[in-house]
């Protein structure tokens, strides 16, 4: 957690690592819901997803059940790449590009199937080595697998259960991912599993721009309720970052983010934290 500066000078830190959730955070879709739609099992799956994201049931209990219900083919899962890309949350690409411009390390940690999430992350400019998700297995001996040069529908054959298929697993994955790193870490996400990782990182930013979840809104130290990730840039970069941004797109995104803070679209659990950010940005002070 951030410590309030003991001195009278107002400061806002610059984060070295920013971890994003994927579904309903970087993209407006939930991958699993899109797979369900394709199979006409939308209602059943959405109900389970919502219950897990709202923290009513444990993800571990429903993770396998959802996939078993859908048994998506490898090709259907690959189709999610396009679905993610078509539904980018506003400013996701711009924020990531700006953070990379600053040398901030960007990660994507998702409970979704890793292959399309990684494709989407790379599309947004994230190093594929910084992406974590759930590995599905497919039956490569499906259909007429022996005919070369033809697109085969590889059937679903299970997934690798691990930390990300449990509700409380995200902290573990983030700890592993950042084990040898130094500097402050910010996590941005929409769900209960992200909120559970709040204590693992230095600042958790709840994102309600796609899906508003009451538990996350009230539990997150900072909560974005606008449908854009632009506020993540000033929150992660602080005034020190702003001074080093040069590309017009990055600066525009930064200003847009501040505008949303000013407009009250970013909620702070503690009022003085909001004031701290505003004052820091005004005075140009940063805590390095």
């Amino acid at each position: 957690m951030l410590e309030t500066s003991p001195t009278t000078r107002v400061r806002w830190p610059e984060f070295a690592h920013v971890v994003f959730d994927c579904d309903s955070t970087l993209s407006t879709i939930e991958g699993i819901d899109v797979l369900a739609e394709g199979l006409g099992l939308e209602a059943e799956v959405t109900a389970l997803t919502d219950a897990a994201m709202a923290g009513e049931v444990d993800l571990g209990d429903i993770y396998g059940a959802r996939l078993e219900m859908l048994r998506p083919t490898e090709q259907a899962v690959a189709g999610l790449r396009a679905a993610y890309k078509r539904n980018v949350v506003p400013h996701a690409g711009a924020v990531i590009a700006a953070l990379r411009e600053l040398g901030t390390k960007v990660y994507v940690v998702s409970g979704g199937l890793v292959e399309p999430v990684a494709e989407f992350a790379v599309h947004l400019g994230v190093d594929p080595a910084n992406v974590r998700g759930v590995q599905a297995r497919y039956n490569e001996l499906s259909g007429e697998w022996w005919r070369p040069g033809q697109a085969h529908e590889n059937e679903f054959a299970g997934f690798e259960a691990g930390a990300l298929t449990r509700s409380n697993g995200k902290p573990e994955v983030i700890r592993d991912l950042l084990a040898k790193s130094c500097g402050l870490t910010m996590l941005v996400g929409d769900g209960a599993s992200d909120l559970q990782a709040a204590d693992t990182v230095d600042l958790f930013v709840g994102f309600g721009g796609v899906a508003h979840r009451e538990r996350v809104a009230t539990g997150a130290p900072v909560y974005i309720r606008a449908n854009t990730l632009a506020p993540v840039l000033p929150l992660a970069a602080g005034p020190g970052g702003r001074d080093r941004l040069t590309s017009p797109e990055a600066l525009r995104t930064f200003e847009r983010g501040i505008e949303l803070v000013e407009r009250g679209d970013v909620l702070f659990q503690e009022d003085d934290k909001r004031e701290q950010l505003r004052a820091a940005l005004a005075s140009g002070e940063t805590q390095r």
């Binding site: 497919y138 039956n139 001996l141 499906s142 007429e144 697998w145 022996w146 054959a157 299970g158």
Partner: peptide
């Protein structure tokens, strides 16, 4: 072999 196996009703799957 794979086509003949299918003709003879032998189902094949990848296992883990």
């Amino acid at each position: 072999a794979p086509a003949l196996a299918a003709e003879h009703g032998i189902a094949v799957a990848e296992a883990h």
